[in-house]
Amino acid sequence: MYLIAVCGNLLIILAIISDSHLHTPMYFFLSNLSFVDIGLTSTTIPKMLVNIQTQSKVITYAGCITQMFFFILFIVLDDFLLTIMAYDQKVAICHPLHYTVIMNPQFCILLVLISWIMTFLNSLLQNSMTLWLSFCSHVEIPQFFCDLSQIVPLACSDTFVSDVVIYFVVLLLAIGPLSGILYSYSKIVSSLCTISSAQGKYKAFSTCASHLSVVSLFYCTCMGVYLSSAATHSSHSSATASVMYTMFIPMLNPFIYSLRNKDTKMALKRLFGKKL
């Protein structure tokens, strides 16, 4: 599954880079999303595979902090990119005549760059709050990777300040992108209602069907992780839900975007045709 996730996302990136027909804002964001998905699954799964092979669940303090930094970075960046892609769909459907002017290359690069900077600073802040905490010599993490929500409660020192800062930032970063996605799709639905023909509505909505599928999977699994752990306090159910958004989503994204997208399928055929 890990190899499928990595190879699938790499193929999407290679297809977009090699095919000039896909040098558009939508596929530029998709290539960034594929890169982030590779980073997300590579942050946690290789260590888990090593643990399975060696029958050892030990991770060093430095390794845990490093893993947590990159996990927070990629999971939040994934959310930001999905929000940007929702905005891109809104502009394409609601303002088709001004699309190339609004979504110019400089603006697209700026959006991605701002996302990277914000997520990097957020990850740095979250890790800094964790580094201020002191832990006992032997700590057992009820998860298969270093998750912030699982680590902070295990600290031996007072975690009140860390909890306030961490939950405030998480709430802000969760509500902000979700609000942006909901706003974009509300505008898309309003624009679709003005289209008279059923064929026109289907054609317009089909352009954002893949993105909507990925967004639904992302938020449903993320909510499942934290709701299941909060409701049942079961490490097994939390770990099971965590596998969904650390492995299944990065693995499914290439299939969703390639199977539902004719341009991507044609680009992949041309890519394999060149190699053959």
Rank of each mutant, 00 (worst) to 15 (best):
F74E: 01
H23C: 14
T83W: 09
A241V: 02
S242I: 01
S18K: 13
Q53G: 06
P46H: 03
F69V: 01
M223I: 11
F35C: 08
M118C: 10
S123L: 08
T60S: 15
G200E: 02
C222E: 09
Q143H: 13
V152K: 00
F272S: 08
T83N: 11
S157M: 02
I117F: 13
C222G: 14
L11E: 09
C7S: 15
N127M: 11
V101I: 10
Y202R: 11
S20I: 12
F218G: 03
T119F: 10
K275V: 13
Y2V: 08
V101W: 03
T246L: 11
Y245S: 14
L40S: 05
I65E: 01
W132E: 07
T240S: 15
S234P: 09
C146P: 01
Y226H: 12
I188H: 03
F71Q: 02
G200Q: 03
Q150P: 00
V112E: 12
L178R: 05
I52Y: 07
S137H: 04
K262Q: 11
L40W: 05
K201C: 13
Y219S: 10
L33Y: 13
L110E: 05
M247I: 10
M251E: 05
Y219F: 13
L217S: 08
V215L: 08
L121S: 04
L259G: 07
T240N: 15
Y87F: 14
M68N: 05
L173R: 04
I93R: 04
C136W: 03
C64K: 01
I52D: 03
C208G: 05
S206R: 13
L154E: 06
V165S: 00
Q143W: 10
K203L: 11
I17E: 13
L182H: 01
T221E: 12
S210I: 06
I93D: 01
P177Y: 01
A209W: 11
D79Y: 14
T119A: 15
Q199E: 12
S186M: 06
Q150A: 09
V189I: 12
Q106G: 08
L192M: 09
P105L: 07
I181G: 00
